[in-house]
Every structure is written in structure tokens, then in C-alpha cells.
Design a protein around this nucleic acid. Sequence first.
DNA 1: TACCCATTATATCGAGGTGATACATCGGAG
DNA 2: CTCCGATGTATCACCTCGATATAATGGGTA
Lengths: 194, 194
Amino acid sequence: MLEFAILGLLHEAPMHGYVLRKRLHETLGMFRTFSYGSLYPTLRRMLRAGWIVEEPADPVAGWNRRAKRVYKLTADGKERFAELLSDAGPQTWDDEGFGVHLAFFSRTPADVRMRILEGRRRRVEERREGLRAALARAEEKIDRYTRELHQLGLETSEREVRWLNELIAHEQAEQRGTQTFNGGSARPTHTEDE
Amino acid sequence: MLEFAILGLLHEAPMHGYVLRKRLHETLGMFRTFSYGSLYPTLRRMLRAGWIVEEPADPVAGWNRRAKRVYKLTADGKERFAELLSDAGPQTWDDEGFGVHLAFFSRTPADVRMRILEGRRRRVEERREGLRAALARAEEKIDRYTRELHQLGLETSEREVRWLNELIAHEQAEQRGTQTFNGGSARPTHTEDE
DNA sequence: TACCCATTATATCGAGGTGATACATCGGAG
DNA sequence: CTCCGATGTATCACCTCGATATAATGGGTA
């Protein structure tokens, strides 16, 4: 997830790790923050993988151990980002992954967006049903506080499902729109309810 | 947090790690689950600390490496649990800690309950203000999807604050009730709005 | 009886995250 | 000129996850 966010941010411009972390915090701040303890190790992993390169901020001074560095996307890194953008796998359903991916949603392909939203909806519906069941099953056996928390969780899930439904409807409308314009050739409106 | 939950559950009865994990899942299932990869290491940590002891499930067979074990609370473990129950520190404000602590709320002292609820409220209010600010500040610079997510987050925070207010009011009413009965001696109703 | 398989049960590994802390440089306010 | 807050890189101990390995047990069925 961190890798994904870094690739996305470096797409804008090369940056110091420090700046990266600040931008990370601005972009995802409300759902997620990452510490330096994960940032720097991740950057080194990405260097090894070849998604990014580092350059000394001061070319004259060169490479001391704590020299300031600027990180820069490589062609492979861009490819990797595109790959991750098109991933609608299970990680993108959960709170963590969904939040981060959504931050780059306007860059992800429409069909992938749709699959992510539907996956997320399934996830939240499961949670909602779990909470409903827990509340129905127990009713008085469970702790008053736990019941209240379950109740809150249930309402939160219900709200999110409604929110997702609206987003999904909007996406569908948009897709129909663009399809009308470009003629809606080979596969008309197939992947509606998968 | 896992340690806390384990202590709480072992309070009921001695258990196998496996059973512990199932009970954990039942009790906290909707907010949190723990994997074996953290359960067994945590149990060993707790053994070393002396909060629990292990006994062979089959006393005749004794100790092979993979012998079945039953974990049992010690006096120190009970003390430790009481200590954790009375902790209203910052960890108990965040999603994770708050959810877990709430599962044992009926066993936590009334004043600690209050401090936890108030701390949590502060936390959620901060988040709410952060989201409000982000929405106001940007309004059109940010991604449509991010804005929607912020909107959802904002409403969720608002709901939770209201939920907390109700719980807190209920606690206060209850405290006034019991105080009336036992005479409300030395410090009347001091810690109302800290 | 013999066999199969789901459940019960313990254990470890690599990968990745956190919070705290250390170290270093730089620019501006006093 | 000196102190301090912001910029910047780095590491540590500890914790957690998901996947996987290993094995005993008990019940149903061939």
C-alpha cells in the first residue's frame, strides 16, 4: 500500500523522502499515515526492485551515509504503478487498501474502479450482516456497551453501503454516457451486475 | 491489546490457545481478529512475564514440543488485567484500542470508563475537524472521489460523536444515581467536564 | 475394522508496520 | 552569533499478519 502511494506521488515530481512523507500525510492523512520507520525501508526495497532511483540532492558533495537524496520514478516504476492501479484484488476491498486506492481513483481505469467499488460493497455488506446477526443472536446476553458498539457499527456499515451504491450508480451512468458517445460497439453494457 | 484481551478471556476459565483464539474472534470479531502468528508469541511473552502459566492438557504425556497446553491466569495476571482495565491512556482513544477495551467495559471502573469515552470523543472530534477543514479548504482542487470519501468520513465522525455523547450522558446520569444512594460524600460531582 | 477427513491444536517464517530515538544540516529571529 | 524549529536520513525493538507446516483426535462410512 505504501509502495503504491509512493509511486503515485512520485508521478507528480521527484522528491525527498521527507517531503514524500508530508505529501503522503496530506493526501491520505485522514485514513492513514506512515512512519519513517516504514518509509525509508520501503524506499530501499523499491530501489532494489528498480521502480525508483535516488540522486544526491547536492551533486558536488555526493554520497555520504546521510546525504540528502532525491527519489525519482523510473520507467519500470511507472509501469508498476499502472499495474497496481489496475489491481482490483481483495486488498482493495478492505479499509486500508480501499482508502489508499481511492486517493488515486481518478487515474484508475473505469472498469477497475467499478470492480473495486463492488468488491468493497460486498465487504461492507458482509460486515453489516455479521453485525446484524450478532445483534439478533444475543440481544441480552451481550454487554450493553458491546451492543451499543455493534449498533454503531451496523449503522455505519449501512451508511457506507448506501454511499457505495450512489458512487456505483454514478459510475454506471457515466459509463453509459461515454458509451453512447463512442457508439457502444462490441460489448454493450455487459459487466453490469457481476 | 492482544495481551489485554487474553487476560480478560482467561478470567472466565483456563483455555487452549486455539479456543482462546475462537473466543477472541467471537468477542471482538467485528472490529478485530488476531492471527496465530501473533497469538502464540504473545502467549509466550505472557508466560515469561508471569501473567499466565501453562499446563499439559494430558498430564501423563507431559511436555513434548507440540504437546497440547492449557493456559491459566496467575495472581499477577489478574493484577495486570486490573491495571490495564484502569488504563485510560491514549491507546484507548484510537479505533483499535477503544473497540477492544469496550468489550470489557462492564468490568472497568466507572471513572475510567468516563475518561476513555471523553478521550475517544476528543479523538473523533479532531478527526471530524480535520475532515471539515480539508473539505472547506479544497472544495474543487481535490479529486471528486477523495471528496466523497471525506464526506463519508465526516458524517461517520459526526455520528460517532453523537453516539459518544449519548453514552457519556448515560454514564453521568448513572453516576449521579449511585452517588445519591451512597451519599455522594467527599468529592461531589467534580470531574464533570475536564 | 479400516479409512477419510474436518476439527482441534501448536508452531514458525518472511514481510512489513509503529513509535521512539538518534543524528545532522540549515535558515531566520533575537 | 547563537539558539531553535524545520528539514532530512536512519535505525531499533517490538508487534502483527498471512501463509504454511505439523500432528493428534473423533466421527461417519465403506
